[in-house]
Amino acid sequence: MAANNRPLSPHLQVYKPQLTTFMSITHRATGIALAVGTLMLVCWLIAAATGESAFNEVQAFLGSIIGRLLLLGWSFALFYHMCNGLRHLFWDTGKGFEIETAYMTGRVVIAASILLTIGAWLWGYAAMGAI
C-alpha cells in the first residue's frame, strides 16, 4: 500500500519517559486487565447461581496462591483505574493541566491506590479472622 511509504512523525522512543506518560498507559493497561478480571466476577456469580459444588470450586481457586495473586493484581488495578479515572474526570472540567499540578495529582493517585489496596486486604484478612 502506498500509504506505508509516508513519512512518520517521531514516535514514543524519542521522548524521555515521564511519570505522566507512564500513568497514562497504566490507566489503559489496568482498564484492559479489569475487563479480563471481570470474567472472574461473572464466574463467581454464575457459580453461586449454579450450586454449592460449583461455588466451592470457584472459591477454592480464588483462595489459592494463584487466585490470591490475581485478586491482588485486580484490586490494585481497580483502585488505580478508579483514582486515576477521578483525575481524568477532574481534567474533563478543564482544570489541573499545569505541569506541577499534573505531577502532584499523579503522585496522589499512586499513593491512594497503594493505600487502598493495602487497606482492602487488611480488612479482608481481618474479616476472615486471620489478623
Partner: peptide, 30 residues
C-alpha cells in the same frame, strides 16, 4: 464519563461488601 461516575459509588460499595464477607460460605453469599 457517565458510566465512570456511576461506577465510583457502585464499586466502593461492592469492594467494601466483599472485604467484609471474605470467608463467608455458599449459604451466606447467596
Amino acid at each position: 464519563r457517565m458510566t465512570a461516575v456511576a461506577l465510583v459509588p457502585l464499586l466502593v460499595w461492592f469492594v467494601a461488601s466483599i472485604c467484609a464477607m471474605i470467608g463467608a460460605d455458599y449459604g451466606a453469599v447467596r
